[in-house]
Simulated scan of single mutants.
Amino acid sequence: MNPTLFLSTLALLSGFGLRYWINRRKFYRRSPMGAEGFSSYEKSVLISFLERTGKWIAFILIVFGLLFFWSYSRQKKEKEEVVLIEKQNPK
Rank of each mutant, 00 (worst) to 15 (best):
Y72M: 02
Y20V: 06
A58T: 03
G17I: 03
G34I: 05
L66K: 01
R19C: 04
E81G: 05
Q88F: 10
G15R: 01
F49H: 10
V63C: 09
L67S: 04
Q75E: 14
A11S: 15
W56D: 08
F27Q: 12
F6M: 06
R52V: 03
S44M: 15
L46K: 13
K76W: 08
V45G: 02
N2W: 08
S31C: 02
F68M: 07
L50M: 12
N89V: 13
S71I: 02
E80P: 00
R25T: 07
E78C: 01
W21D: 07
S48C: 04
M1D: 07
F27V: 03
L7I: 04
F38I: 04
W56F: 10
I62F: 02
S44A: 12
L84I: 08
I22G: 02
G15S: 05
S14I: 09
R74E: 13
S39G: 10
W70M: 06
T4K: 10
R29N: 14
L10Y: 07
S73N: 14
L67R: 02
I60W: 08
Y72P: 01
I85D: 11
V45F: 09
F27P: 00
F49Y: 10
F16E: 04
L12D: 00
I60Y: 05
R24F: 13
S73C: 09
F64P: 00
S73D: 09
A35K: 11
I57W: 02
L61R: 01
